[in-house]
Protein backbone atom coordinates (compact mmCIF):
# COMPACT_ATOMS: atom_id res chain seq x y z
CA UNK A 1 0.00 0.00 0.00
CA UNK A 2 1.29 3.42 -0.85
CA UNK A 3 1.79 6.31 1.55
CA UNK A 4 -1.05 8.15 3.19
CA UNK A 5 -0.96 11.80 2.12
CA UNK A 6 -4.03 13.07 3.84
CA UNK A 7 -5.89 11.66 6.77
CA UNK A 8 -8.61 13.00 8.98
CA UNK A 9 -9.54 12.19 12.52
CA UNK A 10 -13.07 12.85 13.74
CA UNK A 11 -13.47 15.65 11.26
CA UNK A 12 -16.60 17.75 11.81
CA UNK A 13 -17.91 20.83 10.05
CA UNK A 14 -20.98 22.69 11.14
CA UNK A 15 -22.75 25.52 9.36
CA UNK A 16 -25.53 27.54 10.80
CA UNK A 17 -28.16 29.73 9.26
CA UNK A 18 -30.21 31.96 11.48
CA UNK A 19 -29.05 29.88 14.43
CA UNK A 20 -30.06 26.52 13.04
CA UNK A 21 -27.10 24.21 12.96
CA UNK A 22 -26.37 21.89 10.16
CA UNK A 23 -23.67 19.28 10.61
CA UNK A 24 -22.25 18.74 7.20
CA UNK A 25 -19.36 16.53 8.21
CA UNK A 26 -19.76 14.18 11.13
CA UNK A 27 -16.77 12.56 12.81
CA UNK A 28 -15.21 11.67 9.55
CA UNK A 29 -12.17 9.39 9.47
CA UNK A 30 -10.64 8.90 6.06
CA UNK A 31 -7.29 8.33 4.48
CA UNK A 32 -6.13 9.43 1.05
CA UNK A 33 -3.22 7.63 -0.57
CA UNK A 34 -0.41 8.99 -2.62
CA UNK A 35 -0.74 8.50 -6.36
CA UNK A 36 -4.42 7.70 -6.13
CA UNK A 37 -7.13 9.32 -8.16
CA UNK A 38 -9.58 9.55 -5.32
CA UNK A 39 -13.13 10.39 -6.23
CA UNK A 40 -15.63 11.63 -3.68
CA UNK A 41 -19.21 10.98 -4.65
CA UNK A 42 -22.54 11.35 -2.97
CA UNK A 43 -25.87 13.00 -3.33
CA UNK A 44 -25.93 16.77 -3.23
CA UNK A 45 -25.68 18.14 0.28
CA UNK A 46 -23.81 15.09 1.46
CA UNK A 47 -20.78 17.23 2.29
CA UNK A 48 -18.49 16.32 -0.58
CA UNK A 49 -17.21 19.80 -1.32
CA UNK A 50 -17.00 20.66 2.35
CA UNK A 51 -14.78 17.64 2.83
CA UNK A 52 -12.65 18.59 -0.16
CA UNK A 53 -12.07 22.10 1.15
CA UNK A 54 -11.42 20.91 4.66
CA UNK A 55 -8.81 18.50 3.31
CA UNK A 56 -7.11 21.18 1.25
CA UNK A 57 -6.86 23.77 4.00
CA UNK A 58 -9.23 26.12 2.20
CA UNK A 59 -11.64 25.96 5.07
CA UNK A 60 -11.18 25.26 8.72
CA UNK A 61 -13.07 22.35 10.22
CA UNK A 62 -15.15 22.90 13.31
CA UNK A 63 -13.68 19.96 15.17
CA UNK A 64 -11.23 17.21 14.47
CA UNK A 65 -7.94 17.13 12.70
CA UNK A 66 -6.60 16.94 9.18
CA UNK A 67 -3.08 15.67 8.66
CA UNK A 68 -1.02 16.21 5.57
CA UNK A 69 1.67 13.59 5.89
CA UNK A 70 2.68 14.36 9.45
CA UNK A 71 1.64 17.98 9.44
CA UNK A 72 -1.51 19.04 11.24
CA UNK A 73 -3.26 21.63 9.09
CA UNK A 74 -6.62 22.08 10.77
CA UNK A 75 -5.25 24.45 13.39
CA UNK A 76 -2.91 26.51 11.22
CA UNK A 77 -3.32 30.23 10.69
CA UNK A 78 -4.72 31.53 7.41
CA UNK A 79 -1.36 32.71 6.19
CA UNK A 80 0.37 29.47 7.09
CA UNK A 81 -2.35 27.67 5.18
CA UNK A 82 -1.82 29.97 2.21
CA UNK A 83 1.85 29.03 2.13
CA UNK A 84 0.89 25.38 2.61
CA UNK A 85 -1.50 25.55 -0.33
CA UNK A 86 0.85 27.28 -2.71
CA UNK A 87 3.44 24.55 -2.16
CA UNK A 88 1.33 21.44 -1.86
CA UNK A 89 -2.07 21.94 -3.43
CA UNK A 90 -3.50 22.63 -6.83
CA UNK A 91 -7.12 23.54 -7.35
CA UNK A 92 -9.59 23.07 -10.14
CA UNK A 93 -13.05 24.50 -9.59
CA UNK A 94 -16.33 24.06 -11.33
CA UNK A 95 -16.48 27.84 -11.90
CA UNK A 96 -12.76 27.85 -12.84
CA UNK A 97 -12.07 31.10 -10.92
CA UNK A 98 -9.31 32.32 -13.18
CA UNK A 99 -8.50 35.98 -12.58
CA UNK A 100 -10.47 37.73 -15.27
CA UNK A 101 -8.17 40.73 -15.33
CA UNK A 102 -5.17 38.77 -16.48
CA UNK A 103 -4.24 36.79 -19.55
CA UNK A 104 -4.12 33.00 -19.37
CA UNK A 105 -0.35 32.91 -19.10
CA UNK A 106 -0.33 35.61 -16.44
CA UNK A 107 -2.89 33.67 -14.51
CA UNK A 108 -0.61 30.70 -14.41
CA UNK A 109 2.47 32.76 -13.64
CA UNK A 110 0.67 34.59 -10.82
CA UNK A 111 0.50 31.23 -9.18
CA UNK A 112 3.85 29.88 -10.34
CA UNK A 113 5.88 32.89 -9.28
CA UNK A 114 4.60 32.47 -5.76
CA UNK A 115 6.78 29.43 -5.32
CA UNK A 116 9.58 29.79 -7.81
CA UNK A 117 11.57 32.90 -8.41
CA UNK A 118 13.07 31.59 -11.58
CA UNK A 119 10.88 33.47 -13.98
CA UNK A 120 12.38 31.82 -17.04
CA UNK A 121 12.02 28.23 -16.02
CA UNK A 122 8.55 28.71 -14.62
CA UNK A 123 7.44 30.39 -17.83
CA UNK A 124 8.91 27.54 -19.80
CA UNK A 125 7.11 25.02 -17.63
CA UNK A 126 3.86 26.93 -17.96
CA UNK A 127 4.14 26.98 -21.74
CA UNK A 128 5.04 23.32 -21.75
CA UNK A 129 2.02 22.39 -19.67
CA UNK A 130 -0.27 24.61 -21.73
CA UNK A 131 0.87 22.88 -24.87
CA UNK A 132 0.37 19.53 -23.22
CA UNK A 133 -3.25 20.28 -22.42
CA UNK A 134 -3.77 21.38 -25.99
CA UNK A 135 -3.80 25.14 -25.62
CA UNK A 136 -1.97 26.92 -28.41
CA UNK A 137 0.13 30.04 -28.17
CA UNK A 138 -2.71 32.19 -29.48
CA UNK A 139 -4.70 31.33 -26.42
CA UNK A 140 -1.97 32.15 -23.91
CA UNK A 141 -2.32 35.85 -24.54
CA UNK A 142 -6.09 35.88 -24.33
CA UNK A 143 -8.21 36.70 -21.33
CA UNK A 144 -10.42 34.07 -19.72
CA UNK A 145 -13.59 35.78 -20.89
CA UNK A 146 -12.50 35.32 -24.50
CA UNK A 147 -12.21 31.53 -24.24
CA UNK A 148 -14.58 28.62 -24.09
CA UNK A 149 -15.29 26.91 -20.80
CA UNK A 150 -13.26 23.86 -21.70
CA UNK A 151 -10.24 25.92 -22.62
CA UNK A 152 -10.44 27.94 -19.45
CA UNK A 153 -10.78 24.79 -17.38
CA UNK A 154 -7.72 23.26 -19.01
CA UNK A 155 -5.82 26.45 -18.26
CA UNK A 156 -7.04 26.17 -14.70
CA UNK A 157 -5.63 22.67 -14.54
CA UNK A 158 -2.31 23.99 -15.76
CA UNK A 159 -2.47 26.57 -12.99
CA UNK A 160 -3.14 23.76 -10.54
CA UNK A 161 -0.19 21.76 -11.82
CA UNK A 162 2.32 24.55 -12.25
CA UNK A 163 3.87 24.23 -8.81
CA UNK A 164 4.06 20.43 -8.94
CA UNK A 165 1.75 20.09 -5.97
CA UNK A 166 1.49 16.98 -3.84
CA UNK A 167 -2.27 16.85 -4.43
CA UNK A 168 -4.63 18.37 -6.95
CA UNK A 169 -8.12 19.05 -5.65
CA UNK A 170 -10.87 19.20 -8.23
CA UNK A 171 -14.38 20.29 -7.36
CA UNK A 172 -16.70 19.08 -10.11
CA UNK A 173 -14.28 20.15 -12.82
CA UNK A 174 -16.67 19.14 -15.58
CA UNK A 175 -19.78 20.43 -13.87
CA UNK A 176 -20.25 23.41 -16.13
CA UNK A 177 -18.91 21.95 -19.36
CA UNK A 178 -20.49 20.11 -22.23
CA UNK A 179 -19.56 16.46 -22.60
CA UNK A 180 -16.87 16.93 -25.24
CA UNK A 181 -15.10 19.64 -23.28
CA UNK A 182 -15.65 17.61 -20.13
CA UNK A 183 -13.96 14.62 -21.67
CA UNK A 184 -10.96 16.66 -22.72
CA UNK A 185 -10.63 18.00 -19.18
CA UNK A 186 -10.96 14.52 -17.69
CA UNK A 187 -8.34 13.22 -20.10
CA UNK A 188 -5.96 15.88 -18.94
CA UNK A 189 -6.60 14.99 -15.31
CA UNK A 190 -6.19 11.25 -15.98
CA UNK A 191 -2.99 11.91 -17.86
CA UNK A 192 -1.63 13.85 -14.90
CA UNK A 193 -2.65 11.03 -12.56
CA UNK A 194 -0.93 8.51 -14.77
CA UNK A 195 2.20 10.59 -14.38
CA UNK A 196 1.97 10.03 -10.65
CA UNK A 197 -0.04 13.09 -9.65
CA UNK A 198 -2.27 12.45 -6.65
CA UNK A 199 -5.72 13.72 -7.29
CA UNK A 200 -8.89 14.20 -5.28
CA UNK A 201 -12.01 14.98 -7.20
CA UNK A 202 -15.55 15.68 -6.11
CA UNK A 203 -18.19 14.80 -8.65
CA UNK A 204 -21.66 13.47 -9.07
CA UNK A 205 -21.12 12.55 -12.63
CA UNK A 206 -20.59 8.86 -13.46
CA UNK A 207 -18.34 9.62 -16.41
CA UNK A 208 -16.02 11.57 -14.20
CA UNK A 209 -16.20 9.06 -11.40
CA UNK A 210 -15.08 6.30 -13.75
CA UNK A 211 -11.70 7.93 -14.00
CA UNK A 212 -10.93 7.39 -10.33
CA UNK A 213 -9.33 4.37 -8.84
CA UNK A 214 -10.79 4.79 -5.39
CA UNK A 215 -14.33 5.96 -4.86
CA UNK A 216 -15.53 7.33 -1.53
CA UNK A 217 -19.28 7.51 -1.27
CA UNK A 218 -20.64 10.05 1.20
CA UNK A 219 -24.06 10.26 2.71
CA UNK A 220 -25.23 12.60 5.44
CA UNK A 221 -21.74 13.74 6.31
CA UNK A 222 -20.19 10.30 6.73
CA UNK A 223 -18.41 7.95 4.38
CA UNK A 224 -21.00 5.40 3.41
CA UNK A 225 -18.81 3.12 1.42
CA UNK A 226 -15.45 2.79 -0.33
CA UNK A 227 -14.72 1.08 -3.60
CA UNK A 228 -11.29 0.25 -4.97
CA UNK A 229 -11.31 0.10 -8.71
CA UNK A 230 -7.75 -0.02 -9.88
CA UNK A 231 -6.28 2.19 -12.56
CA UNK A 232 -8.55 3.56 -15.25
CA UNK A 233 -8.37 1.83 -18.55
CA UNK A 234 -10.54 3.17 -21.28
CA UNK A 235 -13.46 0.84 -22.12
CA UNK A 236 -12.90 -1.63 -19.27
CA UNK A 237 -16.35 -3.19 -18.95
CA UNK A 238 -15.70 -5.14 -15.77
CA UNK A 239 -14.40 -2.09 -13.98
CA UNK A 240 -17.40 -0.16 -15.10
CA UNK A 241 -19.79 -2.79 -13.84
CA UNK A 242 -18.04 -2.95 -10.52
CA UNK A 243 -18.45 0.79 -10.14
CA UNK A 244 -22.10 0.63 -11.08
CA UNK A 245 -22.71 -2.19 -8.67
CA UNK A 246 -21.03 -0.21 -5.94
CA UNK A 247 -23.08 2.87 -6.65
CA UNK A 248 -26.27 0.82 -6.83
CA UNK A 249 -25.46 -0.63 -3.45
CA UNK A 250 -24.88 2.86 -2.10
CA UNK A 251 -28.29 3.82 -3.37
CA UNK A 252 -26.97 6.37 -5.83
Amino acid sequence: MSNVILSTNKLCKTFSNGGMQQHVLKNLDIEIYEGDFTVIMGSSGAGKSTLLYALSGMDKPTLGSVRFFDEEIAKQSNDMLAVFRRKNCGFVFQQMFLLDNMSILDNILASGLLVSKDRKSITARAKDLLTQVGLTEVIWRKFPSQLSGGEVQRAAIVRALINQPKVVFADEPTGSLNSAAGKAVLDVLTEANNNGQSMIMVTHDLKSARRGNRILYMRDGVIHGVCDLGKYVSGDKERHDKLQAFLAEMGW
Binding site: A82, V83, R85, F97, L99, D100, N101, A110, L114
Partner: peptide, 11 residues
Amino acid sequence: KIGSLKAIGYT
Protein backbone atom coordinates in the same frame (compact mmCIF):
# COMPACT_ATOMS: atom_id res chain seq x y z
CA LYS B 1 -10.99 36.76 -7.12
CA ILE B 2 -9.61 37.13 -3.62
CA GLY B 3 -10.81 33.62 -2.97
CA SER B 4 -8.98 32.17 -5.92
CA LEU B 5 -5.86 34.13 -5.05
CA LYS B 6 -6.05 32.70 -1.59
CA ALA B 7 -6.69 29.25 -3.01
CA ILE B 8 -3.56 29.31 -5.10
CA GLY B 9 -1.60 30.31 -2.06
CA TYR B 10 -1.43 34.09 -1.82
CA THR B 11 -1.28 35.15 1.81
